[in-house]
Design a protein around this nucleic acid. Sequence first.
DNA 1: ATGGTGGGTTTCCCA
Length: 256
Amino acid sequence: MRLATWNVNSLRSRIERVEAFVQRHDVDVLALQETKAREEQLPLMGLQSLGYEVASVGYSQWNGVALLSRVGLEDVQVGFEGMPGYGDPVAPEARAIGAVCGGVRVWSLYVPNGRKPDDPHYVYKLDWLARLREASRSWLGEDTALVGDWNIAPLDSDVFDIEQFRRSTHVTPPERAAFQGFLDDGYAEVTREHAPGYTYWDYYRQRFERDRGLKIDFVLGSPGLAARTTGAFIDRDERAGTGASDHAPVVVDLAD
DNA sequence: ATGGTGGGTTTCCCA
């Protein structure tokens, strides 16, 4: 089974790229983040005609998540136990959607950005991660994949210039501790060893052309899922050219 | 410290 995760930065503006991507790489399950659309806005007939079932949730113009699967899409859940997934009742947010696809429970996650370390959204980010961690402990016994845009760079080498991030989110000790917590519980990040390099590059200052990016998109697998991982890669080609998302897709192969 | 680009319900907000 081939599983991929991609922060598409608007599914409507990227639909042709998404359709080409799943065909080019023969993807079975694709987790999308920052779909930036409500379900009824999405033009997904093309994907459905390619054999994919679709589940999506989105409310605002800056988030939303989706799952595409051609190996079954069962027991769809929005949010996770203990955390509805709608963080702010004033500005509803959709940051987690999960389903059982081909026997694997896949969660497409869009971890809050946090904005600034002294911003309330930063506190919300840590709280959200703590609630996800609490819920995710009960999924360790199944083949579970927590995939998406974690908005955390676990290592200094995951940032093109760590000095520039001294006072920024994504690299603070509490965020890194939150990420490490999942590993302490028994999850394993399964892409890094196969797929070095960044997954996100800012649009401006030619960051991609100069390879000045961040590694913030990850696939965390339960022990059962991690044991099935045979390889992974980052599709940097998808970040190139006009009309690209600012994130590249991350692809993982799992043994049957 | 600032600004750069690209998405969205676009003359502002978000990443």
